[in-house]
Amino acid sequence: MSALLEVSGLSRRFGGLLAVNDVSFSVGQGAIVGLLGPNGSGKTTVLNMISGHLLPSGGDISLHGKRISGLGASRISKHGVARTFQLVRALPSLTVVENVTVALAFGRQKLWGVAARERAMGFLDQVGLAHRADHLAEDLTYIDQKRMELARALAADPELLLLDEWLAGLNPTELQSGIGLIRSLGSSGITILMVEHVMEAIRALCSQCVIMNAGVKIADAPTADALSDPAVITAYLGEQHA
């Protein structure tokens, strides 16, 4: 399995705080990889740098061997990176289908008009929102907004999909269908890097986990090994449990 995403020596500084410190890892083509760690360990910052929302203070990010760090978010999206946000960013005064159409119209396919609407409806159907296509996004529940955001990310035709706690807040039934959805995306060939706290989902989906604590990578291994690593247990539960 060749690497799609290569992160090397990545750092990000906020004033005096080193939020991400010399983090390196790679994500193989077609893999579903978990990015884990306690709150404040720098996972979302890593995601933000990959998607171009933040510029790295140091280090490199490359996709297919091409350097994408330093580019803006709009350029990086054209390289095939799409994402959802930890706190959903819907476009509230647009309709649900328009929200998805945006990614089609400015993504790599440049679809517009009837064709774009048909494709958008397809993605909404995939996440189970087709029946609400013409509602305003602000009228959706939080969970439905998350679904819509995923449909929008899929519409960008990504090779690498970044999910930031997309499964958080789902009830047990929704969680099962959510896990099923992500698995089907993975088997359709999309590479996924997901920040997640729901262990059930991580064990079910991720072949590999990168674990961070206080801005540093502390483990990077197949999921079962990574989760039983003493350094990881210490980071989550404290010294005496290790």
């Binding site: 998607s51 171009g52 929302h53 803006g72 978010a73 709009s74 999206s77 054209k78 799409a82 994402r83 946000f85 960013r89 476009l91 509230p92 005064s93 647009l94 328009e98 159409t101 945006v102 990614a103 119209a105 400015f106 993504g107 790599r108 517009w112 929008r152 960008a156």
Partner: peptide
């Protein structure tokens, strides 16, 4: 046009606009 949609998105949320590939 698509330009009009791009403008609406920029007005709503520039971060989303950039992540959808709009050259703001």
């Amino acid at each position: 046009s698509r330009l009009g949609l791009a403008l609406k998105v920029i007005g709503e949320d520039e971060v989303v606009a950039a992540h959808c590939g709009i050259a703001i």
